[in-house]
Design a protein around this nucleic acid. Structure first.
Length: 560
DNA sequence: GCGGTTGACTCAGAAATGTACCA
DNA sequence: GTGGTACATTTCTGAGTCAACCG
């Protein structure tokens, strides 16, 4: 993992790849699929039709009913129309996409019904594409590329209440593409008749391909897979930084507690914000341009309206009630008892302010991170999230693992430890649509298993009685096999019950994000080694590839 | 020297797809 | 053996973080 260290900022010496795979060109609808305007059939120009199909494909989705979505879509759609179409189509509500929508549904259905051979053919084609474009050579290694396919055109769907939802995401052409590779590599060729926007040779960055996206004007990249050396090393570094924080976190905590008393308002705000980031694992909270994105916040951008102060609540003193939308418009709701000083400071910060005013008006992420940099090299707000997540996993594993448990029960403990972290980081998911049903199915399985167990026990009992009377080898053997049957069923029942508990507790919680991004994998690897749990029970194939470095490195006595 | 902007990277949940299991 | 369903995995791409840059 440490074969060669590069000088500061150099990411590679040699980089060769085949460039991106473009989205397939638009295929016009068959003649018999109609679009209606104001009740009348209307044949659209190819460009207008393509954009119309984007809308038609989403027709069942809730956001096609949202006013902002419709407004943005219609505005961008009109830009693609011929002047004739533009003068005819003046109202989206008069557009009827249902026939188009039905056509696409039928297509989806037909795809599902394809024969094995046809499916196999598609699979092979994908594999060929992956083989040709999915890998690059970086220095001496062949590495997997993460997203070598360029995003196809479509309608922008932001998360939450996004002001730009419904806008047209335009088709990316070779002329938009910047290629990054080394000078002495075989430079990828653009599709026939096209040119790249630029070919550059910048070994201070890790991306292979980039383009500017038209909704936010931000840059998108093609980079390597998490299993690659360059990503793995960075990941490892991240956890090493968090481990360095472990060594000085007590000092930092004492420091910010002192700062709650500072004469300077700026210092007090910084100290309270840092307390939240540390205690609640909040994100830093950069400022965002108003009207460009959904209205979400993190710690430094919290507004007065996002917290409520309760001098007393449910028998606890100094409770802060948080209610705000964070990254991806996921709601953060939490009632937290805080120290008196923090509480008093918050009261002070909120004095004479409007609900929409910043809670920390003298603070931003840049000020905070500069301060953190002084406390420890490489320390930023997000390191606290990594540190607290990993240390929580380690503690919880110690606490919850029962040496006498069997493997499924130990894995439940692991999942619970993982869950504690996901809750800390507020990683949520929409409860699966079929949750109630699947829970009921599982319960009926458990009930059936219980009955089966009762039966098996009865059989065992009568076999025992029988053996007592007969006293022969054959009936003894029967007793033994009945005993085994009971045991087997008991185990199966237990497994089911564990599964039910696990699933219930996991209803609204997403474990994946913390597992993939916040938990030092060496903790998990060490735990597996210590308790003889096969690593496959914890990490699937992709995860094992991503964490290969940790699986290689960590021994059972690893301490975060 | 500073405040805003840009670039490069990590992190995020939904949706699509694949697979295993069961009737 | 088959087809359908539930669950797991993969893909997709949007949304953050943070530091360098620039006027």
């Amino acid at each position: 993992w440490e074969e060669e260290r590069y000088p500061e900022g150099i990411k590679w010496k040699f980089l060769e790849h085949k460039g991106p795979v473009f989205a397939p060109p638009y295929e016009p609808l068959p003649e018999n699929v109609k679009f209606y305007y104001d009740g009348k059939v209307m044949k659209l120009s190819t460009k207008a039709e393509e954009v119309a199909t984007f809308f038609a494909k989403m027709l069942d989705h809730e956001y096609t009913t949202k006013e902002i979505f419709r407004k943005n879509f219609f505005k961008d759609w009109r830009k693609e129309m011929t002047s004739e179409e533009k003068s005819t189509i003046t109202s989206l509500s008069k557009c009827d996409f249902t026939h188009m929508s039905q056509y696409f549904k039928a297509q989806t259905e037909a795809r599902k019904q394809m024969s094995k051979e046809e499916k196999q053919k598609i699979k092979e084609e994908n594999e060929r594409l992956l083989k040709e474009y999915g890998y690059c050579v970086m220095d001496n290694h062949k590495e997997r590329i993460a997203n070598f396919k360029i995003e196809p055109p479509g309608l922008f769907r932001g998360r939450g209440n996004h002001p730009k939802m419904g806008m047209l995401k335009r088709r990316i052409m070779p002329e938009d593409i910047i290629i990054n590779c080394s000078k002495d590599s075989k430079i990828p060729s653009p599709p026939p008749g096209h040119k790249w926007k630029e070919v550059r040779h910048d070994n201070k960055v890790t991306w292979l391909v980039s383009w500017t996206e038209n909704i936010q004007g931000s840059i998108k990249y093609i980079m390597l897979n998490p299993s690659s050396r360059i990503k793995g090393e960075k990941d490892w570094q991240k956890y090493e930084t968090a481990r360095r924080l472990k060594k000085c976190v007590d000092k930092i905590r004492n420091q910010y507690r002192e700062d709650w008393k500072s004469k300077e308002m700026k210092v007090r705000q910084r100290a309270v914000a840092l307390y939240f980031i540390d205690k609640l694992a909040l994100r830093a909270g950069n400022e965002k341009e108003e009207g460009e994105t959904a209205d979400t916040v993190g710690c430094c951008s919290l507004r007065v309206e996002h917290i409520k102060l309760h001098p007393e609540l449910d028998g606890q003193e100094y409770v802060v009630e948080f209610d705000f939308l964070g990254k991806d418009s996921i709601r953060y709701y939490n009632k937290v008892p805080v120290e008196k000083r923090v509480f008093k400071n918050l009261q002070l910060f909120m004095e004479n302010k409007q609900p929409e005013d910043d809670l920390f008006d003298r603070l931003n992420t840049s000020i905070l991170n500069k301060h953190l940099q002084d406390l420890m090299e490489g320390l930023t707000a997000k390191v606290f999230r990594t540190y607290n997540a990993s240390i929580t996993l380690q503690q919880q594993l110690k606490e919850l693992t029962n040496p006498d448990d069997n493997i499924p029960a130990k894995i439940l403990s692991y999942n619970r430890a993982n869950r504690a972290v996901a809750i800390l980081c507020n990683h949520q998911r929409a409860p699966p649509k079929t949750f109630e049903k699947s829970m009921m199915n599982l319960q009926s399985k458990i009930d059936a298993k219980k009955e089966q167990l009762a039966d098996a026990r009865r059989e065992l009992k009568s076999a025992k009685a029988d053996a007592k009377v007969r006293r022969d080898e054959k009936s003894k053997k029967t007793v033994e096999s009945k005993k085994k049957a009971v045991q087997r069923i008991e185990e199966q029942l237990m497994k089911l019950e564990v599964q039910a508990t696990d699933r219930e507790e996991n209803k609204q919680i997403a474990l994946g994000t913390s597992k993939l991004n916040y938990l030092d994998p060496r903790i998990s690897v060490a735990w597996c080694k210590k308790w003889g749990i096969p690593i496959e029970k914890i990490y699937n194939k992709t995860q094992r590839e991503k964490f290969a470095w940790a699986i290689d490195m960590a021994e059972e006595d690893y301490e975060f």
